[in-house]
């Protein structure tokens, strides 16, 4: 089948909209993640939580597809020759964030951990901070494409939210192991907290990489 040739302007427009879509997806996934965890803490795993999980699953699949399409177009069309590696690295980081959010909810869906009420606030705060770190990565990534100098304004916020997530996570784990819960529940709950903390860590790694990519683009 003959390859359909499109004009460079149309190709650029399509690619720019695909990158924007990828960023929108990660941002929406962060919102869905936050809502799903909050809902689970309040009402357990019901239809609403299931809907949020399916949403995240779709976001993750779409993200995979977009990352691969954008990467292929960048390389085959020799676009952004000096920064295509960075853009692909950034998209991979975003895709990993989608994976981690989906994985986090998937484990909750399978294990349905019982979270004692005294941990509800801390747990929700931990998930909110991690989701906020992800949203700041999205903001920094948007800035990278249009105004790389401004990207560092978001990177320090990512660091802040990562630290907050870690602080809250450690607090919960400490309290867990000082409680009268059985060791099996302590370990199970610790595993879930660690998954949320790992999400913030990944966001932090993406922020560090973005800071370097932004400097390279500003030069």
């Amino acid at each position: 089948m003959a390859e359909l040739k499109i004009s460079p302007f149309r190709r650029t427009r399509i690619l720019a909209s695909q990158i924007d879509e990828m960023l929108d997806i990660v941002s929406q996934a962060a919102l869905a993640f936050r809502h799903a965890i909050g809902h689970y803490i309040r009402s357990g795993w019901d239809e609403t939580a299931e809907v949020k999980y399916r949403q995240l699953d779709e976001f993750e699949s779409r993200g995979d597809k977009l990352r691969s399409t954008i990467g292929q177009t960048l390389y085959t069309e020799m676009l952004l020759p000096d920064t295509s590696g960075d853009v692909l690295g950034l998209l991979s980081s975003l895709d990993r964030l989608l994976d981690d959010m989906e994985h986090c909810l998937e484990v909750v869906r399978i294990e349905r951990p019982e979270i004692p009420p005294e941990y509800h606030d801390g747990w929700l705060e931990c998930a909110t901070m991690a989701a906020e770190a992800v949203e700041q990565v999205v903001a920094a990534a948007r800035s990278y494409f249009r105004d790389p100098r401004a990207a560092r304004d978001y990177v320090h916020k990512i660091h802040y939210y990562e630290k907050e997530t870690q602080r809250t996570a450690l607090q919960i784990i400490e309290q867990l192991f000082q409680s009268d819960l059985g060791l099996d529940r302590k370990l199970q709950l610790r595993g879930h907290v660690w998954l949320i903390d790992r999400l913030a860590d990944k966001a932090d790694d993406a922020g560090d990489a973005l800071a370097i990519y932004a400097v390279k683009r500003s030069v």
């Binding site: 460079p8 650029t12 720019a16 952004l80 683009r217």
Partner: peptide
């Protein structure tokens, strides 16, 4: 570039 803030892809296109 600082004022217009073009998307990296459009900047790439204009540069070509």
């Amino acid at each position: 570039i600082r004022v217009v803030k073009p998307h990296a892809l459009w900047l790439d296109q204009w540069t070509r």
